Simulated scan of single mutants.
Amino acid sequence: MLEGDTGCSLWPSSLFLSEFILSYPKIFSKKRCFELGSGVGLVGVCLNYVGSSKVILTDGDASTLVNMKTNMKMNNLCVEQEDSQSMKDNNNKVQCKYLSWEEASESDLWDCRPDIVLGADIIYDPVCVPHLIRVLSMLLSRGNNGGINDLANKEETKYEFTGGSPTEAPNPPIAYMATVIRNAETFNCFGKAAADASLSVANITNSEAPSNLLPYLLSYDRVSVQLLKITLLS
């Protein structure tokens, strides 16, 4: 374990979510992706590999963020600035940002506009659940009534143009979360808070199971991981 929090360790849920991304690349290709509690950054490496148009990794622990940036630099993926020329000119699309769920506001997330929100092993502390739900709601509300960036991007997101012809407005954001249910009470707390916030939580572990891409990693217990698909009810 490096100097820092639990985010400096690699957990089964992160491996499972990475397998899911690599198994279903079309879901994430050319999509703006935003991860909560990114830890070591493995999910970001996989998102970049499958061709996500933008990848934003976040964490609320300073030591974890330093380690994450180091890992991205080792993979030639780190972009420090939003308008960095490297983001425009090559495939280095991964940004690492500090994000405290307790302190996050809509203005902090104003420019993110994710198509997909991700998280691995971030449902573990009932104290953090209300803050997580609040941040999730803000990120998933883009494209819904009163959602983040709705007004500022109304004209931008109303249509997509292909060959000069308008197409339907883009689909609303979706969240994919991989989690190990260590404590049923905490998980139930998350489910109730999600329902109260008009978030739909569906377990897709079996219906969209990823390929077993890490059979050689004997310490990886993928059976214990659940995969959730979360959307904002209209």
Rank of each mutant, 00 (worst) to 15 (best):
L57P: 01
D59L: 04
N212K: 15
E208S: 10
F16L: 03
V201M: 03
N188H: 11
E80P: 01
L233H: 11
P210V: 08
K154V: 10
K93H: 10
W110H: 14
E160M: 15
L233Q: 12
Y98D: 11
T162G: 06
N91F: 09
S9N: 12
A152G: 15
G164Y: 06
A184L: 13
R182K: 13
G119S: 10
L139D: 02
F16A: 00
G60V: 04
S198R: 09
E155A: 13
M138Y: 02
S200W: 13
D108C: 04
K192F: 12
N48G: 02
T64N: 08
P210W: 02
L151Q: 10
L214Y: 15
R142L: 10
L232E: 01
C189G: 14
S86I: 15
E19F: 01
L213M: 09
N183M: 11
F34Q: 04
K93P: 00
S200T: 14
N76I: 04
S13Y: 01
S207A: 15
P114T: 07
G39H: 00
S63L: 12
L42P: 00
L99I: 07
L57W: 04
T186Y: 09
G7M: 00
E35A: 03
A178E: 00
S137L: 07
E3W: 07
P173S: 15
L227S: 00
N67Q: 12
Y24W: 08
Y220A: 09
D83P: 02
R113L: 10
Q95C: 12
T231Y: 06
F34M: 09
N71F: 09
